[in-house]
């Protein structure tokens, strides 16, 4: 009984949230659907080859990029050029 009342209360709260946001979000969703329908035409429907190739490409590129630019230390070419990003302004923001 307590659980039922809790769930009904929850449904009422969620109902109020969705009821308020639905008129805003649904037209946006309809807009999304329009452009998606256009874009979907270009995707091949016959076989998985293109999808597998793109997936593998993402992974291989990801590995390659990470090996060269892991992002945790200043790249060699910047060090060699002596480029410094640290400024008093940046300090303040940080």
């Amino acid at each position: 009984m307590i659980l039922q009342e809790f769930l009904q209360g929850l449904a009422d709260i969620i109902g109020a949230i969705i009821g308020f946001l639905k008129p805003i979000v649904t037209p946006i969703g309809e807009f999304m659907v329009k452009w998606i329908d256009y874009v979907l035409v270009i995707f091949p429907r016959e076989n998985y080859v293109a999808y597998i190739v793109i997936c593998v490409l993402f992974i291989v590129t990801g590995i390659f990029v990470n090996c060269y630019w892991p992002g945790d230390k200043k790249p060699k070419y910047l060090k060699e050029k002596g480029i410094e990003f640290k400024t008093p302004e940046n300090e303040k923001i940080l």
Partner: peptide, 16 residues
């Protein structure tokens, strides 16, 4: 997150 959770709760409560 609030919106997504709300939609998930609606789906679950609808099923219940």
């Amino acid at each position: 997150l609030l919106l997504t959770l709300s939609l998930s709760v609606v789906t679950i409560l609808g099923g219940l």
